[in-house]
Design a protein around this nucleic acid. Structure first.
Lengths: 225, 225
DNA sequence: TAAAAACTTACGATAGCTTTAAATGAATGT
DNA sequence: ACATTCATTTAAAGCTATCGTAAGTTTTTA
């Protein structure tokens, strides 16, 4: 699952930065726009999974923007959350009729927003029946149950080992460089040495047997097919 | 799907009749109450799918009534719409905090009300297709009766413990992250620490035995199969 | 055969979980 | 109304699997 893309639309630059920062921090891919027209332009290119839209904006307001977006095939399935000031006229909430999937009242606590964003993306995701199990070579992993199975026998792997194996098995045969591995299993900001990877590979080999994970010297590792 | 049941609560007899007539006409099964206490009594027996609740009522107001209803397991999943007079103090809308799912401002056009009712019932229908009894591994839970049964012996669990177990058992084997657990058992906005989950897990383990709920370090918990 | 890369082992730090206990708040009985 | 019991949350301390690193060894490559 790639990182989810969120488009944030508000005419107030401060809010844009504040919310943008907080959502980015949680690992989402964020773009911003400060009015309805821009929002539509950006949305066309960026193809966000979710749009957070201030209702009160000069020129084209949130509801009008939402309405137009809903009529664009490309954005048909995009989720839209309205941002409304508490105390605004609540006929606003006719927003649901304009096609919003949810809404939040200002003032907004970042935690609340993030949790709402997660919730609504999850709701969407759950309708799409994700595949959570991969299999290759008599070895299979089930992300949902966090289990590895070899020749019919199930094992528990610690988190890092599991993530590492999952990565390698996500494309059996493909060589993953150490850089890619660090990025994917440990995440961009963490700095751990290369030896750390070796050790985790070793632990996996202990549990899997030496046949499955192959070293490609000077390049990286792969799950053998 | 049988016809949906709606409970209408307002202290003004005229409104009650007016709205009642219009909703009935659309094929819903309607009961009425003219104050908070009655509403709760009727709700217990009638088990409506949706309650439309006037905020301004003598004695027990709508928000208080709503609050009490939300604490009754039997009505936990019932949808509640608030009726508020336009121009009323909007701190009212804290109504959402009291657990309302939506609200409508007076004066109300029947058409608008009916369309809102339809919309919100639809929303519910799509997210809720839960079986009220789940079984796995000799343990079963019955949501309707709020009972847990282990090896033929029935126990009653406190609310949080029950909800937690119900979540884990909703997909046996699947690992639920702490985030998902908090979101689902405690609700998006509530802030309780991670330790709280641990403790409830512990209580469940005390009652179930240590075999059923498994910790997946760094990830979450699951109901073992 | 020298240099580079990867492997192995073992150890120390710590994140993350468990446990205990105690405070607060809600529900129930007298 | 008061006391009592039970549910929930928080705080604090303990525990351990997991993680990261160091350092020496082996294998590969040029």
């Amino acid at each position: 699952m790639s990182t989810e893309k969120i488009l944030l639309v508000d005419d107030d630059q401060d809010i844009l930065e504040f919310l943008g920062y907080n959502i980015k921090k949680e690992g989402f891919d964020v773009e911003t726009a400060s009015n309805g027209k821009d929002a539509i332009e950006v949305a066309k290119k960026f193809k966000p999974d979710l749009i957070i839209l201030d209702v009160m904006m000069p020129e084209m307001d949130g509801m009008e923007t939402c309405h137009q977006m809903r009529n664009m095939p490309m954005l048909k399935d995009t989720l839209i959350i309205f941002l409304t000031a508490r105390g605004e006229d609540y006929s606003q909430i006719a927003g649901f009729d304009a096609g919003a999937d949810d809404y939040i009242t200002k003032p907004i606590k970042p935690r609340v927003l993030v949790s709402k964003v997660r919730a609504i993306l999850r709701r969407k995701g759950s309708t799409q029946e994700e595949e959570s199990a991969i299999e290759a070579n008599g070895v299979s992993i089930d992300r949902e149950r966090y289990l590895m199975k070899k020749d019919g026998v199930e094992f528990n792997l610690p988190k890092k080992e599991f993530e590492l194996l999952a990565l390698l098995m996500s494309k059996p045969g493909k060589v993953f460089t150490r850089e890619v591995i660090l990025d994917s299993v440990w995440g961009g900001e963490v700095v751990v040495g290369d030896r750390t990877i070796d050790v985790h590979i070793r632990k996996l080999r202990e549990k899997l047997g030496d046949l499955y994970i192959k070293t490609v010297k000077g390049v990286g590792y792969k799950f053998e097919v």
